[in-house]
Amino acid sequence: MDPSSLLQYLITGLTLGSTYGLTALGFTIIFNTTGVINFAQGEFVMLGGMMSVYFMHALGLGEPAAVILAVLGATMAGALVERLAIRPVRDCPAINLVIITIGVSILIRGLAMLLWGKDTHALEPFSGYQPIMFLGAAIMPQAIWVLAISLFLLGALKLFFSGTIHGKAMLACSYDPKAASLVGIGVQRMVLLSFMISALVGAVGGVILAPITMTSYDVGIMLGLKGFAACILGGLGNPFGAAAGGVILGVLESLGAGFVSSAYKDALAFVILLILLFVKPSGLFGLKDSKRV
């Protein structure tokens, strides 16, 4: 095995992995505020990509404007999901809310199919097709965009959660909503905010990915699944763990396809995930659940 192939597998894995990581981040944000796994997260990713395509073709906007509008639109969709589907049943146990998010994901997917059709669409890369050659491996300019934007989002979220009053308030809600509301935090407002932020993160992921992977009404299913797996791998609730879990999953898949067999690459990644969970059930970077008595 020559080193340039190995490098190529790593680069491919990193690009693929950061998309899983971005989806996983969205899961983490909502989980941290509400304790709910939002299975409509993959649909936010799809909305980012599909809305960009729609705004470009139907309204004739340039790519930058279409992308920004799409991200805003998906953020609004996140807010709507919270208002219409989660808030009316906010007192239900978390498991009911999880089931509701599955329903929401099916609804969003169905609406997207009716509105925009069943075709796959492609988006132009932000800075051309010409690959950058690095030690015999090709790096797509779009991959650098994906990595840079993912890192930027991760840093911004880190700052938001540990450095701002809103971020800290959201964390407080996840520890104990009642105590949070007693110290004057608007818990419902925080939940709404968490849905909007995670939809925004998901949509940004969908937009930067669409030039590489293309987009259609049903891309959210697989991305949601992989993003969720990345969350579990990194340890549920830890944003850094989610991003790292995504990257590890992507690299495993890529190396699996390269060195073992491309027919079993998904299986290989998930087998490693299972083994890891047997050894360390809380995930790589998850904290042990401790109960005070």
């Binding site: 190529q8 491919t12 590489i212 697989m222 491309s262 690459k265």
Partner: peptide, 20 residues
């Protein structure tokens, strides 16, 4: 003799292997 899944979004790994 490489294979990809119908929903796969990246076949760079397979192509790299074929190149090799």
């Amino acid at each position: 003799d490489e294979v990809y899944g119908p929903k796969d979004t990246d076949m760079t790994a397979q192509l790299t292997k074929i190149k090799g």
